[in-house]
Design a protein around this nucleic acid. Structure first.
Length: 478
RNA sequence: GGCGCUAUCGUCUAGGGGUUAGGACGUGAGAUUCUCAAUCUUAAAACCCGGGUUCGAUUCCCGGUAGCGCUACCA
């Protein structure tokens, strides 16, 4: 039974790259009947914030994908330290008494020397113990095997076989001079201890993985399988970052803009993975059914946002499709908070009647209030009376139509078929095309030219309101 | 600088020694229609460059270039 983990560091909001990593882990777990572990990698006390923890949980809760076990790395600190010393006792690590680097990292000239700190590696156990005893500060470093032909290798599910000469891997730190474990140690120990079988994570860890397999060896633990995911990058090519790109990369931004989680997930899955057929609109069960790490590709994917439009057009399009796939009642329920936020408080029955009229006209939930406000406003916002006049008509004609409509609507039952028949008859009687006759009425009633189909709109609005608005429109024309 | 990864329409991608290089988004045109949408049809749009291997490379190999990543006692 596979066990996978998602291990975010709470140093900022949950961003779309992390979300995708979570999703791929989740899909792999669910596809293989495995276990999903959530682990908060919160060892960096300096940069961790509660707000970030909050944001991560908020984002994941919105996605609606669950996990089976939950851990906090900071609660396992003693375990990590003990693990480091076990590695030391097994001869895979040594104390390095060299003072920590003082800032400047531009050491391109010191080629070779960076691999390890000369001398320290060869210090006798006695001397090492004595200096430690004397209180001299030190870091604990991994003793990377040296010598001709020594290589470190692993097989990545996405990038295939990876091999690196051990001589190109530096003696990296396991414990800092303050005694605290580094990320690499904590992460690997936890992965081993939690019996993680597959590590699925961003490709930015691909080269770190060589160090990780070394740590697993020091831990006397068989390394898990690895799968590295291509990175999500911004249109400028840089790795998506909270720092550079701001809230457009935050999952909650998508939520607040009215994306459906299933659409967002669908979109993210298509970045670096595809089902090998021409389907693009996919439900979560559909994706789960066919998800394979082997179908993950190896090149970075651009999330195509701009200053003008913070969302990738494809994401928006997919959201529109998912919106339309939703049962009306579900969509209505999703819409409520967006109307509330816009200051409209639609009666539930009325909103339920409006939803089908706007469903094909919005791509984001947040677009709904602007598309349907006239259904709920007592008074129409001001509009240009010129809009009442159709293309090849004039004010007199518009007024004629509206006057006539007044009497027709007063006398017609307010259902779709009756209105259809009555208004078409009216148009014919006036010698006008349907479009010409309907525009004045639509604008009078909706306050704008582009709106849902007329008869349905009238029905939902109700006779009284329609007549009132037409009266107002006539007044505007005078 | 070193090491690694990657390279197909603007973007996401399929494909693969011989194809009209396929799909999707976006863009243009048209159909439908009471407007706008939705829907349907359609057009324009791509194999980074140079060498090999081969009868034939966009595909395989090598090199270059570019982008990205790693190169911390950050994660």
């Amino acid at each position: 039974m596979p066990r996978v983990r998602f291990a975010p560091s709470p140093t900022g909001f949950l961003h779309v790259g992390s979300a995708r990593t979570f999703i791929f882990n989740w899909l792999f777990a669910r596809h293989n009947n495995g276990t999903m572990v959530f682990r908060l990698d919160d060892t960096d006390v300096e940069r961790n914030t509660d707000q970030s923890v909050q944001s991560i949980f908020e984002g994941l809760q919105w996605l609606g994908l669950n996990w089976d076990e939950e851990y906090k790395q900071s609660e396992r600190l003693d375990l990590h330290k003990a693990a480091a010393w076990r590695i030391f006792e097994r001869g895979f690590a040594y104390r390095d008494f060299t003072p920590a680097h003082s800032g400047d990292s531009g050491n391109s000239s010191s080629q070779g020397a960076w691999l390890f700190n000369p001398g320290m590696r060869e210090l006798s156990r006695e001397e090492s113990d004595r200096r430690a005893q004397a209180g001299e500060p030190f870091a604990l470093r991994y003793r990377v095997p040296r010598g001709e032909g020594r290589v470190v290798r692993f097989v990545d599910a996405v990038y295939c076989e990876m091999i690196k000469p051990a001589d190109e891997i530096e003696d990296f730190a396991l414990l800092r001079s303050d005694g605290n474990p580094t990320y690499h140690l904590a992460s690997c120990f936890d992965d081993a201890d939690l019996r993680i079988t597959h590590i699925i994570r961003g490709q930015d860890h691909l080269t770190n993985t060589f160090k990780h397999v070394l740590i697993f060896e020091g831990l006397d633990s068989a390394p898990p399988r690895f799968a590295h995911l291509p990175l999500l990058v911004a249109p400028d090519g840089a790795k998506l970052s909270k720092r550079k790109h701001g809230p457009v990369v935050s999952v909650t931004t998508y939520r607040d803009a009215g994306f459906l989680p299933q659409a967002f997930i669908n979109f993210l899955c298509l970045l670096g993975w595809n089902p090998k057929d021409d389907r693009e609109f996919l439900t979560i069960p559909e994706i789960t059914a066919v998800f394979k790490l082997e179908n993950v590709n190896r090149s970075n994917a651009v999330v195509n946002f701009t200053d003008a439009d913070p969302f990738d057009p494809k994401a928006v399009h997919l959201n529109g499709e998912h919106l339309r796939a939703l049962p009306i009642d579900d969509l209505t329920a999703q819409l409520v908070p967006f109307f509330t936020k816009a200051g409209l408080n639609p009666a539930p029955e009325k909103l339920a009647a409006v939803t089908p009229l706007i469903r094909e006209r919005i791509r984001l939930l947040s677009e709904a209030p602007a598309a349907a406000d006239f259904f709920f406003l007592a008074e129409l916002p001001p509009y240009d009376p010129a809009e009442l006049i159709p293309q090849k008509g004039d004010a007199a004609q518009a007024k004629l139509v509206l006057d006539k409509a007044l009497s027709v609507l007063a006398a017609t039952p307010f259902d779709h078929y009756s209105l259809d028949a009555a208004l078409r008859a009216m148009a014919a009687q006036l010698g006008l095309k349907a479009g010409q006759a309907f525009q004045p009425i639509r604008v009078a009633v909706c306050g704008r030219k582009n709106a849902p189909p007329l008869f349905e709109t009238l029905t939902v609005l109700g006779r009284d309101l329609c007549l009132l608005r037409i009266h107002h429109a006539i007044a505007k024309l005078n």
